[in-house]
């Protein structure tokens, strides 16, 4: 029953996104904000799988986003002409399919990068992941700065701005759906045991390395998708756009929302995207106020806004019907 609900919710979000994008016209500033929010929801929700639910500490989410952004941009920019030749010109169908292929390629490229970084580092217990991902983010940035074909540090003009409200929110819904259902499934409880006590998890037979790698690679994939959306939204990429501060911004969303709380993290992604916009009026104090608010929040609610509460996502969960539930 719950399973049907959560699929219905997913469908409802997708339909709503479609209707909104067809019949409501936003002014362009509002659209920029609303799409940025959607992209941040994808980034924060996916990072929450690693930093929240699995209890690891990745500092390189912007790096995976960069891999996705540049890879997908390369697909549409360099492959676009061929694609349109093959599929009979620039039509709605050919651009949409090109965009989907580019997004998927971006996600996959980021996932592969996740695998390469994750497998050696996640075998080790401890803070190696933080260091490795920090290094990864910087390496990606330096590589991009020196890749002339992708514009180097001057930046790269993306072949087309295909990202729409619909695509952003459809993918955000998919991300939330996948993460929420995953961590509340019988299989997904494994992530939580790795976070709660890695040694005890191993002692009962959980392959903790595998769980950490799965979480990390999946998160990288979604970060890659977000990167693809971002690339085809802003239309112009610079390596600086994916610096360390970008990773920190996403981590802050996860912490403010409450590590391992999907609803809280979504809320924080919305709030922390809007907050700097609201503070535009006091331009020179903006970052000061932003930082102060974060400090106050961490002092008053160290577990995050929603930390410790689980109810907001219960209705989104796929209930795992278990025969043993009766035994309890």
């Amino acid at each position: 029953m719950m399973a049907r609900y959560s699929k219905l919710v997913l469908l409802a979000v997708a339909v709503a996104a479609l209707l909104v994008s067809k019949f409501v016209s936003f002014d362009s500033y509002f659209l920029i904000v609303i799409i940025t929010i959607g992209i941040n929801i994808i980034l924060a929700t996916s990072l929450n799988l690693v930093n929240g639910y699995t209890g690891q500490f990745s500092l390189g989410h912007a790096g995976f986003m960069a891999v996705g952004a540049y890879s997908s941009a390369a697909v549409t920019t360099f492959g676009g002409t061929h694609w349109f030749e093959i599929f009979g010109g620039v039509t709605a169908l050919s651009t949409t399919s090109l965009f989907i292929v580019a997004l998927v390629m971006g996600g996959l490229a980021a996932a592969v990068a996740g695998l390469v970084v994750g497998i050696p580092t996640l075998r080790l217990r401890g803070d190696y992941l933080a260091i490795a991902t920090l290094g990864f983010g910087e390496i990606i940035r330096v590589i991009l700065q020196n890749t002339e074909k992708m514009g180097g540090s001057r930046g790269f003009s993306v072949g087309g701005t295909y990202t729409t409200f619909f695509w952003t929110y459809a993918l955000a819904a998919v991300t939330v759906y996948v993460v929420a259902n995953l961590v509340h499934s019988a299989y997904g409880r494994g992530f939580l045991t790795v976070r709660d006590d890695e040694i005890a998890a191993e002692a009962i037979g959980v392959n903790t390395v595998k769980y950490k790698v799965v979480a990390f690679v999946l998160a990288a994939f979604f970060a890659g998708l977000a990167g693809g959306l971002y690339a085809h939204f802003v239309g112009y990429l610079t390596p600086e756009g994916f610096n360390f501060m970008r990773s920190i911004e996403i981590i802050v969303m996860v912490i403010v929302g409450g590590m391992g709380n999907t609803a809280g993290v979504i809320f924080a992604a919305v709030l922390l995207t809007l907050l700097p916009e609201w503070l535009r009026g006091v331009q020179q104090y903006r970052m000061v106020i932003y930082s102060l608010l974060l400090i106050v929040l961490m002092l008053t609610r160290p577990q995050g806004l929603f930390g410790g509460l689980t109810w907001p996502t219960r209705w989104l969960r796929k209930k795992t019907a278990s025969p043993d539930a009766n035994a309890a």
């Binding site: 019988a186 494994g190 045991t193 006590d197 005890a200 037979g205 025969p323 043993d324 035994a327």
Partner: peptide, 30 residues
């Protein structure tokens, strides 16, 4: 070394993590 954020029931279920015979869990629960 229990899983602090899982319920008692979920902790016990995790103990049976490698078992495939879900239908028989009730014996151990009892």
């Amino acid at each position: 070394m229990i899983f602090a954020n899982l319920t008692v029931h979920e902790n016990l279920l995790m103990g049976a993590y490698l078992r495939k015979d879900r239908a028989k869990f009730h014996e151990e629960f009892e």
